[in-house]
Design a protein around this nucleic acid. Sequence first.
RNA 1: CGGGGUGUAGUAUACCGGUAGUACGCACGAUUCGGGUUCGUGUAGACCGGGUUCGAUUCCCGGCACCCCGACCA
Length: 416
Amino acid sequence: MRQSQLFTKTRKSAPKDEVAKNAQLLIRGGFIHKEMAGVYDFLPLGYRVLENIVRVIREEMNAIGGVELNLSALQNPDAWQKTGRWDEKAVDSWFKTNLRAGGEVGLGFTHEEPLTALMCEQISSYKDLPSYPYQFQTKFRNEERAKSGLMRTREFLMKDLYSFSKEETEHAAFYEKASEAYMKIWKRVGLGDKTFKTFASGGSFSKFSHEFQTVCDAGEDTIYINQEHKIAINKEVFTDEVKKELGLGNDFTEAKAVEVGNIFTLGTRFSEPLGLTYKDDDGKDKSVFMGSYGIGPARVMATIVEVLSDNKGIVWPKEVAPFAAHLVAITGGNQDVAAEADRMYELLREHGIEVLYDDRDVRAGEKFADAELIGIPTRLVISEKTLSQGGLEVSERSSGNATFVSDSGIVEHLKN
RNA sequence: CGGGGUGUAGUAUACCGGUAGUACGCACGAUUCGGGUUCGUGUAGACCGGGUUCGAUUCCCGGCACCCCGACCA
């Protein structure tokens, strides 16, 4: 799209009440807007990034058999009362309100209860299992203290997948597949090198749950990384006993990290109180064995900014960047250059390349500074100089390396 | 939820118990045109309520909002 038509402008300074790097850069670049503490709007640039992250997650969830649906944010207390989680003493992060017609509702902070209740209608036989429904859905948590920009907010998008299996063996196989899918996701969004599958506290049905922790100073968690096995242990369960049990030796490095995702064995914690059973091939009723698998796309977005930005701005990995290329026209009033830039913009669009075209009437320095702040992976510059040579200057945001590419070769260059 | 801090144009800031200043932005004009050019003109502001005072943006009290540390995080 044309930058002159972009909804937002960049700004030189961040609001003084934002200290987190992710929030500062995302606000300065025009990706997000703070509505109130712990609540952010996603503006066109930011929404594109968020949607790209969602797309990557969706593809990987579909690849392991996920089926996408969308559950309501407003929650009926019934199911929650059956599991004991409507009680404020059990869950202190509820947003609740009253219906004018009478009765109470809550804004969902997770969806085990309503989905498990819903599954009672869908599952009756072992032939209906396993099932892997998931959604991208807004969660509400009345956090006592929102913090660190997009890292911990009161309203946020979550990908939550729930596995419904016949028994533990079937569950374990899917749990492992989900774990592998998660690792693919981190790699695709540019966090692969810094994200570790991390052992964390489990529940009644498994000794451990697993978190996916990205090493980052802005993180809230402390993990101990075993480089040899590319695996980590959360501080909360980092004991000699656990180290021994996992056979990971004694060679660990401590690091601050952000929990970008987690997977959890739920067992029959929810299926039993809500009566989710199936008829097995021996004619007996059995409780469904469950697991949950969460990722917060906005937190992933914030983590990418924290981990990959430099002193000039954000550096988006290709798969999540709001645009593939940033076409910058340095016209200096030269109409030939402007016309060529217009032509190139149309050409790239015709070839399906997502491009942000800086057609604004501002000086080169401002355009370059903005391009670096916004962080689109590839910058294309058209100026009198490049026009006379019949091509464009192509530079990579991540390395700063620039090359010259001819007019005729540019589409192919970008498609690679 | 405990502790600490901050509220001044759209943004970042300054001074002051007595006319609220600067920079960026924005508007207009000129200048310039591959690294936030230069100059002129203009635009726009004291979180809310109460108290003290002749007079409060400034001091005091309360509220609200926001930030940080800690706790919490099925």
